[in-house]
């Protein structure tokens, strides 16, 4: 008995000494990332960690709104960087949650592609750098349906063989923006008749839907639980790579385009390391590794040489000539957002 205790004690002591030693050599400091789930390869984090001798910690979220909620509920000052989508960058800027990146603080800022260097949601890239961009549409199982899929009617007024086999994303913005495209009404419309019609249309569509889920958007297509899934283009590509016989749609009515951006948070505890990380992600080789993993598109020049060859021809990233317009989700003003909230509650009551 005593010998066991003794051995346990010595091992613990040894472990403590080892970890102390490790603590002494490790880390110029920490970097705390708040990121989407399944969106960055672990090897890339390890590479950054090794190159700059920084201890990287990452938490994840599953929607732009839950990112905002967590930061509002006391998350500020905990995280150094986060990865909000386009409209959320604008909201977070207006909420005063983002720090300004001064001129010259990012040495790789010039690598940003011209089309993303001055976006409407962050003019002049004062707070953010591009991470990945892509689209939100839906994918259809070709085992179940072989008709034309490039119409939003597949989601909102589906043919009989697809009814009851549809998974929608569980976020208001993505569902209601797609619904507005389907009806051909502007986002954040103030027209009451259009809003009433939107309310009725989604309620009439709901019986066709099997579930609302974002986290398992890919998994339900791979497993065959549903035949249609609203999904992001990269996720659809990965579902296809995992064996789902699906095709990603580019509806003629239009589809959602988004860009996720790495932002510098106000009160970042490790501001220096955050800037190092942003510069690191502006290196073509590194951001190409994200693209190879996530299957979206980087907003940085010079990545082509580092990309998997099949990405060039990936159908999910190459809209056909007759595809509808890609539109960004808009952040609506309060009085319109409240009507949208009401429509969403009516839909899910």
């Amino acid at each position: 008995m005593t010998s066991i205790v003794k051995r346990a004690l010595t091992t613990t002591a040894a472990a403590a000494v080892l970890s102390l030693g490790a603590g002494a050599v490790a880390a110029e400091g920490d970097l705390v990332i708040y990121h989407w789930f399944e969106y960055i390869p672990q090897e890339l984090l390890d590479k950054f960690s090794e190159e700059y001798d920084v201890n990287v910690v990452m938490d994840t979220y599953d929607s732009n709104e839950s990112l905002l909620a967590a930061l509002k509920a006391g998350g500020m000052g905990t995280y150094d960087v986060a990865v909000p989508g386009d409209y959320m960058v604008e909201i977070m800027t207006n909420e005063g949650m983002l720090d300004v990146i001064a001129d010259g603080e990012l040495k790789n800022k010039g690598n940003i592609s011209e089309e993303w260097a001055d976006p409407s949601f962050d003019p002049g890239r004062k707070h953010s750098i591009p991470y990945q961009w892509g689209s939100t549409s839906f994918a259809v199982s070709r085992d179940v349906y072989d008709g034309d899929i490039n119409t939003t009617a597949i989601l909102f007024d589906p043919p009989e063989e697809l009814s009851g086999q549809i998974n929608m994303l569980d976020t208001q913005g993505e569902v209601l923006t797609m619904a507005a495209l389907h009806m051909g009404i502007p986002q954040c419309t103030t027209d009451r008749d259009q809003l009433k019609a939107l309310n009725q249309m989604v309620q009439a569509a709901k019986p066709h839907w099997a579930s609302f889920n974002s986290d398992t958007a890919k998994e339900v297509l791979v497993s065959g639980d549903v035949a249609v899934g609203q999904i992001w283009d990269g996720f659809a590509a990965r579902a296809r790579a995992e064996g789902a016989n699906i095709e990603y749609a580019f509806p003629k009515e239009g589809y959602v385009v988004w860009m996720d951006n790495v932002v510098l948070l106000k009160d970042a505890p490790n501001r220096e390391n955050a800037l190092l990380f942003m510069d690191f992600l502006l290196e073509p080789e590194n951001i190409a590794a994200v693209t190879n993993y996530a299957r979206y598109v980087a907003g940085v020049d010079g990545v082509e040489d580092f990309l998997d060859p099949e990405l060039k021809t990936q159908p999910e990233a190459n809209p056909p000539a007759d595809a509808g317009p890609g539109v960004f989700v808009q952040a609506c003003p309060q009085e319109i957002q409240e009507v949208y909230d009401q429509i969403w509650t009516n839909l899910k009551k």
């Binding site: 929607s63 709104e65 208001q172 969403w344 899910k348 009551k349």
Partner: peptide, 17 residues
């Protein structure tokens, strides 16, 4: 998640739109 339950209704007020 087709219909709100009490838990998801409350969650939506904090984590949703």
């Amino acid at each position: 998640a087709r219909n709100f339950m009490i838990g998801s209704l409350i969650e939506e007020q904090f984590k949703g739109n």
